[in-house]
Amino acid sequence: MLSCPQVGDFSVSLKAPGRNKHFRVHVEGALYCIGQRKFPTLDQLVAHYQRAPIYTNKQGEKLYLVRPLPRAD
């Protein structure tokens, strides 16, 4: 079950085999937090997960952020 997001929180969504994955990014003061990791900017968070997996399943499959999709306004 997902909890209601707090004002100022973000989410990272990515297309994964079988279904999309969503990760909550919450703001703590001036830091953007995803799981136990904390980043001073959203750009640094994204850059990190382009190099390191944002998700690894039990079979060892790793998912990385690849490219942003344009936001539909």
Score class of each variant (00 low, 15 high):
Met1Phe: 08
Ala52Ser: 09
Cys4Pro: 05
Gly18Met: 06
Arg71Tyr: 00
Val25Cys: 05
Tyr49Ser: 00
Tyr64Ser: 06
Lys38Asp: 02
Thr41Gln: 06
His26Val: 11
Cys4Gln: 03
Asp73Pro: 09
His26Gly: 13
Ala16Gln: 12
Leu63Glu: 11
Leu31Cys: 06
Arg71Glu: 03
Pro17Gln: 08
Gln36Tyr: 08
Ala30Asn: 15
Arg67Val: 04
Leu65His: 12
Val25Ser: 10
Lys58Gln: 13
Asp43Thr: 07
Ala30Ser: 11
Pro5Glu: 06
Gly8Tyr: 07
His22Thr: 15
Phe23Met: 14
Val66Gly: 05
Gly8Arg: 10
Glu61Asn: 11
Val25Asn: 06
Lys15Phe: 09
Ala30Gly: 05
His26Cys: 15
Leu14Arg: 12
Ala30Arg: 06
Gln50Thr: 01
Ile34Ser: 11
Ala72Phe: 03
Val12Phe: 02
Tyr32Ala: 03
Ala30Thr: 13
Phe23Ser: 12
Ile34Gly: 09
Asp73Tyr: 10
Asp43Val: 07
Val46Pro: 01
Leu2Cys: 09
Lys15Asn: 15
Gln6Ile: 04
Ala16Met: 06
Gly29His: 08
Val46Gln: 05
Ala52Ile: 07
Val12Asn: 01
Arg67Glu: 11
Leu69Asp: 06
Ser3Ala: 05
Leu31Asp: 15
Ile54Asn: 04
Tyr64Thr: 03
Lys15Trp: 08
Tyr55Ile: 07
Glu28Ile: 01
Leu63Phe: 03
Tyr32Asp: 06
Lys21Ala: 08
Arg19Leu: 10
Asn20Ala: 13
Gln50His: 01
Ser3Asn: 14
Tyr49Glu: 05
Arg24Pro: 02
Thr56His: 02
Ile34Asn: 10
Tyr32Gly: 03
Gln59Arg: 08
Asp73Met: 08
Tyr32Leu: 02
Asp9Met: 04
Ser13Val: 14
Ala30Lys: 14
Tyr64Leu: 12
Asn57Ala: 13
Met1Cys: 05
Tyr49Leu: 04
Gln50Gly: 01
Asn57Val: 12
Thr41Leu: 01
